[in-house]
Nucleic acid binder design. Structure first.
Length: 350
DNA sequence: ACCCGACCTGCTAT
DNA sequence: AATAGCAGGTCGG
């Protein structure tokens, strides 16, 4: 591998913390290849990211003709010979700024949310630098179809498998081959459902195949991108018409790739957060009805305002970590009882 | 409008 | 060693 230029971008940790932002269940493809060093795919390139107190350091691995060996015949049409000229720093920086939405000042947002909410005030120091990613709608849609009634570890595994099966090879780095995310067309092809079933996707195999076909019927990736210009309500409804996308997943997509930063995906975690800290009367609710779903979203929007979905992600990150801690505490006998008690409490909130 | 069971799979706790 | 329970839900009745 030829040596790769490392560029730097001024960005203090208060504005972006990679380890939280890349691990809080927004995107499922980032890997910490060594402490503090993250690798993943943005667009059709592999990115390596590190940071210090003041800067993000990044390098990219562009495609070369050697890497363009396609196993997927459908994807062959898409590959084209590109010059080996490295993408200039300027363009890379623009991609990075777009992906991390660096045009938003987190300092300003956190400051507003701290004023609005005591709970946020308590968590914001430990969970500084949590950013909403601006993701690709295709990756977002199919990743979150995989997320239903599933855990982050397996979701990540399935998403990676999807890329290996139907994406195109980008680069091989340190023995790991990276693939682009599949095109909608490749997921709509004949036999995809059967293959994915055999590959451990379970009932999501049908959701993926059917939704890919539905998107193709409506105009493919251009249609999906066009949803960005719709109102939140229309965008949410269109996405929900796809198979395997309900209210929660639709809100994830609205928030993470459609630019609707007030969308609140209400899952089990958010339901519990709401019942515990915001809407006590929900503690007696057994199931998350549509009415309660809307009530929780509306409440968060009332508290946090225009960018409530972003604020929700900070709270969600904190809850996710609390949840991880509960599990790992089980390894320490002295803390076992306490962990159990907390877990019971956690479950009762349902 | 609401509730309920079924649903794939792999990891964890018991 | 075997088995129930659960994980960023959705669908159909």
């Amino acid at each position: 591998m030829t040596s790769t230029k490392i560029f730097s971008l001024l960005c203090p940790k208060s504005e972006l913390q990679l380890h939280v932002t890349l691990q809080c269940g927004q995107s499922f493809r980032w890997r910490e290849i060594s402490p503090g060093k993250w690798q993943g795919v943005i667009g059709h390139k592999v990115w390596t990211l590190t940071q210090d107190e003041s800067h993000i350091h990044y390098s990219t691995y562009p495609k070369t003709s050697d890497d363009e060996v396609c196993t997927n015949p459908k994807a062959k049409q898409k590959t084209k010979r590109t010059n080996k000229i490295d993408v200039g720093q300027e363009k890379s920086e623009a991609v990075l700024k777009d992906y991390f939405r660096l045009d938003f000042s987190l300092e300003k947002l956190y400051s507003d949310w701290k004023k609005a909410d005591l709970n946020f005030r308590l968590l914001c120091h430990e969970f500084a630098g949590v950013r909403m990613l601006n993701q690709d709608p295709v990756e977002n849609v199919f990743s979150f179809i995989c997320s239903s009634n599933n855990n982050i570890k397996r979701i990540s595994m399935l998403v990676e498998r999807l890329c290996q099966l139907y994406g195109t090879k980008i680069s091989t780095l340190d023995g790991t081959t990276w693939h682009s995310f599949p095109t909608v067309s490749s997921l709509a092809a004949e036999g995809v459902e059967e293959t994915l079933r055999a590959q451990g996707f379970g009932y999501r195999a049908k959701f993926i195949h059917k939704s890919a076909q539905m998107i193709m019927e409506r105009g493919g990736e251009a249609w999906l991108h066009s949803l960005r210009s719709l109102s939140y309500e229309d965008c949410h409804a269109e996405l929900m018409s796809l198979h395997g996308i309900g209210a929660k997943v639709s809100d994830c997509i609205c928030l993470m790739s459609m630019g609707h930063l007030s969308a609140i995906p209400v899952d089990t975690h958010v339901f519990q957060i709401a019942a515990k800290d915001y809407l006590p009367h929900l503690r007696s609710c057994k199931t998350l009805t549509q009415k309660v779903y809307c009530e929780i979203g509306d409440h968060f929007r009332k508290v946090f305002g225009e960018y409530a979905g972003w604020a929700h992600s900070v709270l969600f990150s904190a809850d996710l970590k609390r949840f991880e801690n509960l599990k790992s505490q089980g390894n320490h006998p002295s803390q076992d009882k306490q962990a159990k008690r907390q877990k019971i409490k956690h479950n009762c909130a349902k």
